[in-house]
Design a binder for these strands. Structure first.
Lengths: 224, 224
DNA sequence: CCGTCGACCTGACGCGGTGTCAGGTCCATG
DNA sequence: CATGGACCTGACACCGCGTCAGGTCGACGG
């Protein structure tokens, strides 16, 4: 699994469709197109997002769009890459938490909150990432992986540590536990509003997740 | 939330595009189109699934397809409805399990297994259901809801019962716990192969989920 | 066995979105 | 202010959608 780490996309070797290196004006147009893509995603389903519409919204023509992106997917991909640079937000919480007692439980709550906040902020793009990943698009899957990989590793490490201390029985596989917890966090954050619609309060969901996190990591009853 | 319960679709009042009630031959064509849709979904991403292709595969013309379905979505919707009739598979396990000791843990394992099996069997259709739901399509969301609602209710009830017996602290909201657990099951089952790809064994994932289920429901340490 | 009628199918078409050129416009620079 | 490269776009060929009007098929009565 040796792949390039996620890094600030290098503006220096951006290329337009014809191989040109875009100048000031060109980059401005590209950025405008990206912004319009992001905006339109907020109100339009991905499947209905047309190049024509993005171009019109950006006050330019479809042909210009193709100057900078091979297709709509490529544009969203850039937005997704930008977003995935924030991957550290999750892992840091896990690493900065002392997983004991009240302290650990607070960390669990913080992690759940961070997921809610992150999904709230990036909902439109995340929707597409999830969508495309599920359709088998490797590029989006990679992004999704990078976004969550740090966290999965951090959780794996903490669980492995506590298992070495004898807190977890033999049949517990730290990476499997981490994967399941991350899945839970991502899916619940994505469906938060769906749950609210069914009368399930976000705050109760947060508590439920925090307790599961705390217990799964520490093997101890969460404090009230 | 008073809606019609999911029930065998009534073949008696099927209508073709022009309002006709189809006869033997017509229904055969319709079925053939559905089968081809299901088959093509196995190998084609939903976004690339064209009416032309389904029609050709079924040895007929696009116009015929529109005779029976307003669009591809509608055809998949029928497949999804068919699938959702199996919703009882999950809830029954929860209801038939005595949530105590070894017995309860076996129930948790069985529930995880059932999710894996169900997702395995219905992967192509479920992919579309998840996709369309995330895109905000109400019809698919309804199906997804019906599919998982029984289970969510069954889990809610069990947790509420055990909470009434004093096993769970006050801050535990049974329906939130149930929703989180169902989310976990669904998401992990959907990404099972993705996890295997990262070297995480399905069996370990199963154990991790079963332990979380058992603990979340009973508030007790799972047996080895 | 044959004609007939209604159920069933499809060829042909207008529409709208895609992606690609060749050629036009703009502006920084000398 | 002229000029050349960076930037844009009109126009077009292509493709899939969805809709007719009209053609085909086969079950059934005679």
């Amino acid at each position: 699994m040796a792949a390039a780490p996620p890094t600030e996309p290098d503006d220096a070797d951006l290329r337009a469709a014809d191989g040109r290196v875009p100048g000031r004006r060109g980059r401005a147009t590209r950025t405008r197109l990206l912004e319009c893509t992001r905006d339109m995603l907020r109100t339009t389903s991905y499947r209905d997002l047309k190049v024509v519409d993005i171009a019109r919204e950006a006050g330019t023509s479809p042909a210009t769009f193709y100057q900078y992106f091979p297709d709509v997917e490529a544009a969203v991909l850039v937005l997704a890459e930008e977003m995935s640079l924030q991957h550290f937000r999750f892992a840091n919480i896990v690493r900065d938490t002392k997983w004991r007692g009240r302290n650990g439980y607070d960390g669990a709550c913080a992690l759940a909150d961070e997921f809610f906040a992150f999904w709230e902020e990036n909902q439109p793009v995340l929707r597409v990432v999830d969508l495309a990943t599920e359709e088998g698009d490797g590029r989006f899957r990679t992004i999704r992986t990078w976004l969550l990989n740090d966290l999965t590793n951090a959780l794996t490490e903490v669980v492995a540590q506590l298992k070495a201390e004898g807190r977890h029985p033999d049949e517990v596989d730290p990476s499997a536990v981490a994967a399941v917890l991350v899945s839970m966090l991502a899916h619940v954050a994505a469906h938060r509003y769906g749950l609210e619609f069914w009368g399930i309060r976000t705050n109760d969901v947060r508590t439920a997740m925090a307790r599961i996190l705390y217990w799964s990591i520490t093997a101890q009853k969460p404090p009230s």
